[in-house]
Design a protein around this nucleic acid. Structure first.
Length: 480
RNA sequence: CGGGAUGUGGCGCAGUUUGGUAGCGCGCUUGACUGGGGGUCAAGAGGUCGCAGGUUCAAGUCCUGUCAUUCCGACCA
């Protein structure tokens, strides 16, 4: 592969210099988001919303294919409803926004703006489910939620953010558990095949579990700077919520039974992950599957007769072939256009000038590695489709390689700290299962338990922290 | 929520130390020449300095408060 040329965009801080600054620079320069006057609430501009729409479409199709249906529930939750499940309230109460007035009149009961909708779904399910014939209920909703976070960052942590939340009710625990795992697998497959982001699947420790859940599973992704990002979660609730909200059904033997539930979600944080996994010093790099524009046509000497006409013709033919394409026909110089669309991460640039037209060719330039190739105009759509799928594949390969290279194992706390320092990433280490040790590891190394994989390796017999017999192998890492 | 930094045309900044009525670059508008890596020239438009008080003859500059952004921690998707 051709080596990417040196950094060509001065406005973007280099990743090596200051990764955090690089991130905010990319968010701005790639035209993804802007700030609003409310702290932590951002404006998703057309470009980032376009990415979100592609994420939505492709995830939604997966949900529908597995029998899920979309619904929409209210954004307000009366305080008494939120209070019904004890652990759940305790987890969310500190960060909810309260509505206290309707117009100028104080409300009899204050309501919170949903931080998540378990309680609303439960209230609904209690009415909606009567018989075993009503089960399973496989609902999902696309909406925004509000959590009054203290520090915020675009896409990674906002006060209001877009997400999908699936809420399902099942007749048996086994079925609900299966749903939890199925969804986790769907998320992982989606991340890899659509976002080109490899993830580690596993179960969360007690400490990191969702408020009110029996079990929480997550997919964890590794950012370019070696920090971990929880990219999605799937929870198994057992019948805890069902008992708190009295969600019962009559089974085939005419006896009352509690349902078993799950919930699961991914958010616009995935856009943050895309930025931090694939981006480089020239800006964003988007995998073709979620690029609002997969190709940008840059005409050269567009005022010369025939150039723009040909460019438009090419655009239409690519569009007809199902490729998302944009024609950059502004009066800006070609160099400006190159840089601009590099910042925005458009996977392929198509250069078309008088010389190319005369030769019946076009120049294609890959965003991910800078490689240039010349293709015949008559094969363009076909070649481009092939190239886009190659890019999609190469991006996943590169990210997978980066992930593999940044997973290490540690036997002692000293080794743990040293490895985390020298090569930030995931650290595999044994753990006794005690919360105290988890906290101690965090205190001493800054790393938290990310998850426990389904296939655990046996690294040693004892806990890395206390030396007592180990129960699990845990992936640890510094997290966003 | 604690610690640091910042807020001045659309964007990035200077001016604040020593109060005297706002400046630069980019961008924008119009025109011409250009065009294969952020073009050139010319002519224009655009801001009372985050917001609210206060001190003063006079505040971008000093004081108090507040809001927002950003970085580092603690909390979370």
């Amino acid at each position: 592969m051709a080596k990417m040329k040196e950094k060509m965009v001065e406005e973007i801080t280099s990743r090596e210099v200051d990764f955090a600054q690089w991130y905010t620079d990319v968010v701005k320069k790639a035209d993804l988001a802007d700030y609003s006057s409310v702290k932590g609430c951002m404006i998703m501009k057309p470009y980032s919303y376009g990415i979100w729409e592609l994420i939505q479409q492709q995830l939604d199709r997966r949900f529908k294919d597995t029998g899920h249906q979309n619904v929409y529930l209210p954004m307000f939750i009366p305080e008494s409803l939120l209070q019904k499940e004890k652990e759940h309230v305790e987890g969310f109460a500190p960060e909810v926004a309260w509505v206290t007035h309707g117009g100028s009149a104080p409300l009899a009961e204050r309501m919170c703006v949903r931080p998540t909708s378990e309680t609303l779904f439960c209230e609904f399910y209690a009415k909606d489910i009567n018989s075993y014939r009503d089960l399973p209920r496989l609902y999902n909703q696309w909406c925004s939620v509000v959590r009054w976070e203290k520090t915020t960052r675009p896409f990674l942590r906002a006060v209001e953010f877009l997400w999908q939340e699936g809420h399902t009710a099942h007749a048996t625990a086994e079925e609900a558990k299966q749903e939890t795992i199925d969804i986790l697998n769907t998320y992982a497959e989606f991340c890899e095949n659509v976002l080109a982001i490899p993830v580690l699947k596993g179960r969360k420790t007690e400490k990191e579990k969702f408020a009110g859940a029996k079990e929480t599973y997550s997919i964890e992704a590794l950012m370019h700077d070696g920090k971990a990002l929880q990219a999605g979660t799937s929870h198994y609730f057992g019948d805890g919520f069902a008992k708190a909200f009295d969600i019962q059904y009559t089974d085939a033997n005419n006896t009352m039974q509690y349902v078993h539930q799950t919930s699961w979600g991914v958010t616009i944080r995935l856009i943050g992950a895309l930025i931090m996994v694939h981006g480089d010093d020239n800006g964003l790099v988007l995998p073709p599957a979620v690029a609002p524009y997969q190709t940008v046509i840059v005409p050269i000497m567009q005022r010369k007769e025939g150039v723009l006409e040909k460019a438009r013709e090419v655009k239409e033919s690519l569009k007809a072939a199902g490729i998302r394409v944009i024609l950059e026909d502004s009066e800006k110089s070609p160099g400006w256009k190159f840089a601009e669309h590099e910042m925005r991460g458009v996977p392929v640039r198509l250069e078309l000038g008088p010389r190319d037209i005369e030769n019946g060719e076009a120049v294609l330039v890959r965003r991910d590695n800078g490689e240039k190739l010349t293709v015949r105009l008559e094969n363009l759509a076909e070649e481009l489709k092939r190239l886009l799928s190659v890019i999609q594949r190469d991006m996943l390969l590169r990210a997978t390689e980066h992930l593999q290279e940044h997973i290490s194992a540690a036997q002692t706390m000293e080794e743990f700290s040293k490895k985390l320092e020298e090569k930030p990433g995931f650290i595999k280490a044994m753990w006794c299962g005690e919360k105290e040790c988890e906290e101690k590891v965090k205190e001493q190394t800054g790393a938290t338990s990310r998850n426990i994989p389904f296939q655990e390796e046996h690294l040693s017999d004892t806990c890395i922290c206390c030396g007592k017999p180990a129960k699990h192998m845990v992936y640890w890492g510094k997290a966003y």
